[in-house]
Simulated assay, not measured.
Amino acid sequence: MKLQMIYAFLHGDISRIEKELEEAIEKENTSIISEASLQLLQAGGKRIRPVFVLLGAKFGDYDIENIKNVAMALELIHMASLVHDDVVDDSDVRRGQPTIKAKWDNRIAMYTGDYILGRSLELMTKIPNVEAHKVLSHAIVEVCLGEIEQIKDKYDLEQNVRTYFRRIKRKTALLIAVSCQLGAIAAGADKSIHERLYWFGYYVGMSFQITDDILDFTSSEKQLGKPAGSDLLQGNITLPMFYALEMPEMKEQVEKLFAGEHDRITAIIEDVKRSGSIEKATKVSDLYLDKALSVLDELPPSKAKNTYNRIAKFIGKRKF
């Protein structure tokens, strides 16, 4: 089953959000930055954050005219972080397409990321709820800290696995968490509801990112839309590699890779697969997924709750 089939009942609202995202980005249609932004948007994506916003809003007074602005803002913040990530990681390919920094340059990419972020904040001004703005502001600060940490930790084989969990919390889990929470806040849901939705989204986000990091070793370039092992080639130590580095010979291999012997990546990937590290990382991802589903159990029955459950299981167990 495709992910979109799980939330098919939201298709009309998602299509509207997609169309209005393009309109928001093309507002300055003479700008090269608008062109670059549109390229990223049209490259696709799972749109998990807008979907989670809409589902969160189903726990309150659902009004698409109000909720769409939150959904678009969260997706734009996510897009801005991707543009900046590609500069930091010197990535030439994303979702099978040239990155903005590859097609233009780093300067255009950084301005594009800033432009997209600015558009997201512009959309959020239409939401009068003060708490929503506090939640979003905190999340943006944490995402920025996550990006800085990623730069600091690159190529560092002495870092602690705790730094990895803190990094993925800031770079991935928090935006998914606040997507669930802000949808509920903007729809006027009770605090007990939106606080539980935050934790549901946080645990799902942690599972989601760990699964992404596993797939970087186990999937093909065609499935990933980028070369397999890209994270490691860019100096990012992820959970499977932390486990693999428990083998003394692995550290020597990765040191040589980081020193420029990039042709070692295929052998390293195969060693990681044989080491049992993938299975260990999968168990951690499953633990976070179980926590997410436990939090969800505390919420009242609804179609939105059931859809959250199915999406969480899908993205936590996906193979692509």
Rank of each mutant, 00 (worst) to 15 (best):
L289C: 12
S137M: 10
T218C: 00
H138D: 10
A57F: 10
M250S: 06
A186M: 06
S179M: 03
L54W: 01
K283G: 13
V83Q: 01
V254L: 00
D90A: 15
F165H: 10
V53F: 07
G183M: 08
Y308M: 13
Q234N: 13
D263N: 15
I176V: 11
L197S: 01
T282F: 14
E298I: 08
A102M: 01
D212Q: 01
R166S: 10
I237N: 01
I193H: 06
N129R: 13
I311P: 04
N160D: 14
L174H: 11
S91P: 07
L3G: 04
R264Y: 13
N306C: 14
R119C: 12
S275H: 12
D263S: 15
G118A: 09
T211V: 12
G96E: 00
L74V: 13
Y62P: 03
Q223L: 11
I265K: 03
E28M: 10
A189G: 03
W104G: 01
E221T: 11
S137W: 08
I176E: 05
A173V: 00
G60H: 04
E221H: 03
G44A: 01
G96R: 08
V284F: 07
A8G: 10
L157G: 00
A244H: 07
H194N: 12
L175M: 10
L293G: 13
K134T: 11
R166Q: 08
I32W: 10
S120L: 02
M79W: 00
K134N: 11
E279I: 10
E255Y: 09
L54M: 04
R162G: 15
V141L: 11
K152R: 15
K2N: 13
L182R: 04
K27I: 10
S81K: 01
D290C: 08
F217M: 03
K319V: 13
A184Y: 07
E221M: 05
A184H: 06
A312W: 02
I237S: 02
L55S: 00
Y198D: 02
Y155L: 04
K68A: 09
I32P: 10
W199D: 14
E65V: 09
D153K: 15
D90R: 15
S302H: 02
A189F: 09
S294L: 14
G225Q: 02
E298K: 14
M110A: 12
K317N: 15
S207C: 03
S277L: 05
D286E: 14
I108F: 14
N106T: 00
A292N: 06
Q181F: 06
S219T: 03
L21T: 03
L145A: 05
V51H: 01
Y164I: 02
E35C: 02
P240H: 07
T282M: 14
P50F: 03
I127Q: 02
V88I: 15
C180Q: 04
A36C: 00
A80R: 00
V130M: 15
A132Q: 04
I48P: 02
I148Q: 07
I265F: 09
K46M: 04
L38V: 08
Y198M: 02
L121M: 13
D286I: 09
V53G: 04
Q223I: 11
V83S: 06
K152Q: 13
